[in-house]
Amino acid sequence: MSGALLEARGLRKSFGALRASDGIDFDVLEGETHAVIGPNGAGKTTFISQLSGDLRPDAGSIRFSGEDVTALRAPARSRMGFARSFQITSIYREFTALENVALAVQAHAGHSFRFWKPARSERALRDPARAILDEVGLGARAEVIAANLAHGEQRQLEVAMALATKPRLLLLDEPVAGMGNDETQRMVTFLASLKGRQTIILVEHDMDAVFSLADRISVLVYGRIIATGSPQEIRVNAEVRRAYLGEDA
């Protein structure tokens, strides 16, 4: 772990009277898995959406690898190395799993003003896509239409698409939401296998997943980060227990 890959300073975002982000300072170190937890309505998705460029903060700044990216929108941030999965699965439902991932590869393979050659038969897109599907364990499901995949497989596919963009920072918004035990276990094992070679921001409700994956945890409550620290530190932090863990556990 070297310096901070991502630095957010003083992020503010309001929706009417609701302060979803109320001055958030947040760092992600190169190579770490940094989890963001917090009760429902704490503003976790609002926060991650500002990091990904889907939402523009009202105030504050975001620096990535030393560069100010606050004004950049999602496609530009993606090209810089951000990749995101959504809380509600976001995939191309009419396309096959392989086509989904191939599109993510294509998005990072130069411009797409190529009008003639059939994209589906391009090995430059298919081969890397297939390799990533194998990696996440969907290799056997490559030709299945995404809408027909099981819920857990769709979540895996979304992560595969994020990885296909060769991200420097992976933003995962509740990757195990709605999954059964087996599926959760598979996803956690897979994410654990990325540790060290992939910098990850993990927003998650599943505390077992968070405590087994995270190097550091930040706790977001009512739009503010009330604590950041190692899993052990967070577990024993009195304020955190009061605000959050106490309610759930």
Partner: peptide, 19 residues
């Protein structure tokens, strides 16, 4: 083509395309 796939993808799920 690649061009057409971008069009169809954006029709299918624009947020995903941007992401």
């Amino acid at each position: 083509s690649r061009f057409g796939m971008v069009l169809r993808a954006a029709k299918s799920n624009e947020a995903r395309s941007r992401a």
